[in-house]
Computed example of a mutant assay.
Amino acid sequence: MATPSIKEVAQRAGVSVGTVSNVLNRPWIVAPTTRQRVQDSIRALGFVRNEAARHLRAGHSRTVGLVVLDVANPFFTDLAEGAESLAQDHDTVVMLCNSKTDPVREGRHLDQLEQQRVRGVLITPCDSTDPRLSELAAKGTPVVLVDRAADGGHCSVSVDDRLGGRLAGEHLIGSGHRRIAFIGGPLTMQQVADRLTGFTATVEQAEGVALRTVEVDVMGVKQGRAVGERIAKLGKKSRPTAVFCANDLLALGFLQAMAVAGLRVPEEMAIVGYDDIDFAAAAAVPLSSVHQPAELLGRTAMELLQEEVDAADQHRHRQVIFQPDLIVRASSDVTR
Rank of each mutant, 00 (worst) to 15 (best):
M1D: 10
A2H: 11
P4A: 03
I6P: 06
E8S: 13
Q11W: 04
R12L: 15
R12E: 13
V15W: 09
S16K: 04
V17H: 12
G18V: 12
T19R: 06
V23R: 12
L24D: 08
N25K: 11
P27V: 10
I29T: 13
Q36F: 01
V38G: 10
A44M: 04
L45N: 10
L45G: 08
V48I: 09
R49V: 05
N50A: 06
H55T: 07
G59L: 05
S61M: 06
R62Y: 11
G65C: 01
L66M: 15
V71L: 12
P74N: 09
T77D: 07
L79K: 10
A80V: 02
S85V: 00
A87D: 12
H90N: 09
D91E: 14
V93A: 09
V94P: 03
M95G: 04
L96V: 15
K100W: 08
K100T: 11
K100G: 07
T101G: 01
T101Q: 14
E106W: 05
E106F: 07
G107W: 01
G107N: 08
L110A: 09
L113D: 10
V121C: 09
I123N: 09
T129N: 14
D130T: 00
P131V: 11
L133S: 14
L136P: 03
K139R: 15
T141A: 05
P142W: 07
L145C: 05
A150M: 05
A150I: 11
S158Q: 05
D160E: 15
D161A: 14
G165H: 02
R166M: 06
R166W: 03
L167Q: 10
H171S: 09
G174I: 11
G176F: 07
H177E: 11
I180P: 08
T188Y: 01
M189Y: 05
R195I: 00
T202A: 14
A206L: 11
A206R: 10
E207G: 05
V209E: 06
V209Y: 12
T213F: 00
M219S: 14
V221M: 11
V221Q: 07
G224W: 00
R225W: 02
V227Y: 01
E229G: 03
L234R: 14
K237N: 14
V243D: 02
V243Q: 06
A257G: 10
M258F: 03
M258G: 03
A259C: 00
V260P: 02
G273T: 00
F279M: 13
F279W: 13
A282K: 13
A284W: 04
V290G: 02
V290N: 01
E295Y: 06
E295H: 08
L296E: 13
L297G: 08
R299G: 07
T300G: 04
T300P: 03
M302T: 09
E303P: 00
L304C: 10
L304E: 12
Q306A: 12
E307A: 14
A312W: 07
R318F: 04
I321E: 10
Q323T: 13
P324K: 11
V328M: 08
R336H: 13
